[in-house]
Design a protein around this nucleic acid. Structure first.
Length: 162
DNA sequence: CGCTTTTGACCCGCGC
DNA sequence: GCGCGGGTCAAAAGCG
């Protein structure tokens, strides 16, 4: 309901988020980078690998091909959950987590063959902190170039690459 | 009208 | 084996 409209209206917030994000990437927050390495290491170890579901009905879950699906998590200071990164996301689930009173939302990229998923969670401690976790790499170009968020995505792709 | 969101049910891995 | 926590499905509602 108040998703992209809010983002558009809260453009200022997005700018703040950007300014908050980019220095983390370039200058490097120790915790941040460590988190990235941890995530990447886990992915490299193959701890978490998922099968790509593709054109089959229910019931086929295990024993399929294992696709390395790099995950990347970062947190932003924003009052809006959804950050418009130029891709189109379809929400497919929402679940409440144990330690946080705010639910976690699950999104999936609406593109044929693009199995990128994203989950957004807001911390109950700080309402202004939103944790966004990307999973997978987009295999299609960005539709919009509305924001400089594309650069951030590029950074994320670089980190998630290998 | 075609799409996304909503929301409860289902499923799965894991710990007890 | 059962319950719990977390992730996904799918049917129906909602909205441009």
């Amino acid at each position: 309901m108040l998703k992209k409209a809010s983002i558009t209206m809260n453009k200022q917030e997005d700018i703040s988020t950007k300014n908050y994000l980019l220095p983390n990437f370039t200058n490097g927050f120790p915790e941040f980078r460590e988190s990235i390495n941890t995530t990447k290491k886990k992915v490299m170890e193959g701890r978490n690998e998922e099968e790509e579901k593709n054109g089959s009905s229910v019931g086929k879950k295990k024993g399929e091909k294992k696709v390395k699906r790099p995950r990347f998590a970062f947190q932003t200071r924003s009052q809006v959950d959804i950050l418009d990164d130029g891709y189109r996301w379809r929400k497919y689930g929402q679940k409440a987590v144990k330690n946080n009173k705010f639910p976690r939302s699950y999104y999936r990229c609406t593109h044929e063959g693009c199995n990128v998923k994203k989950q957004v969670q807001r911390l109950s401690k700080d309402e202004g902190i939103v944790v966004t976790t990307y999973e997978g790499i987009h295999t299609h170009p960005t539709e919009k170039n509305s924001d400089n968020f594309e650069q951030i995505l590029s950074q994320m792709k670089i980190y998630a690459r290998s």
